[in-house]
Computed example of a mutant assay.
Amino acid sequence: MSILDNKKVIIIGDRDGIPGPAIEECVKTVESAEVVFSSTECFV
């Protein structure tokens, strides 16, 4: 059981940290989680 089971997920990655697509790949390992938005932003 995961805390992401049956959840909708919004991902905001950081350009100088962990990018959104990398986090999205980790979330995809939970079959019942749904990524509804994924983006990589630059926080300056």
Rank of each mutant, 00 (worst) to 15 (best):
M1G: 13
M1N: 11
S2V: 05
S2Q: 05
S2G: 10
I3V: 15
I3T: 13
L4G: 00
L4M: 09
L4Q: 02
L4H: 04
D5R: 09
D5K: 11
D5C: 09
D5E: 15
N6D: 09
N6C: 03
K7P: 00
K7A: 03
K7Y: 04
K7M: 02
K7T: 00
K8E: 10
V9R: 04
V9S: 15
V9T: 00
I10L: 14
I10T: 12
I10M: 07
I10V: 14
I10P: 12
I10F: 08
I11Q: 11
I11W: 06
I12P: 04
I12K: 07
I12W: 10
I12A: 09
I12N: 06
I12G: 07
G13T: 07
G13V: 13
D14C: 11
D14T: 09
D14S: 12
D14G: 10
D14A: 15
D14H: 13
D14K: 10
D14I: 13
R15Y: 09
R15P: 12
R15D: 08
D16S: 14
D16L: 12
D16A: 10
G17T: 08
G17K: 14
G17N: 14
I18G: 13
I18V: 14
P19V: 04
P19G: 04
G20P: 06
G20I: 15
P21F: 15
P21T: 12
P21I: 07
P21M: 09
P21Q: 07
A22K: 11
I23H: 02
E24M: 03
E24L: 03
E24V: 01
E25R: 05
E25V: 08
E25S: 07
E25C: 05
E25Y: 03
E25F: 00
E25D: 11
C26M: 05
C26N: 06
C26A: 14
C26Y: 01
V27N: 02
V27S: 04
V27T: 07
K28G: 05
K28R: 03
K28Q: 06
T29W: 12
T29N: 08
V30D: 10
V30P: 01
E31R: 13
E31I: 04
E31H: 14
S32C: 07
S32K: 11
A33P: 10
A33V: 03
A33I: 11
A33N: 05
E34L: 06
E34P: 12
V35H: 02
V35I: 14
V35Q: 05
V36D: 08
V36Y: 00
V36C: 01
F37H: 13
F37M: 08
S38P: 00
S38K: 05
S38C: 14
S38F: 02
S39I: 07
S39L: 08
S39N: 11
S39F: 06
T40R: 00
T40I: 01
T40Y: 01
E41T: 11
E41L: 09
E41Y: 03
E41D: 02
F43C: 01
F43L: 09
F43S: 01
F43Y: 13
F43I: 00
V44E: 14
V44W: 02
V44G: 13
V44K: 05
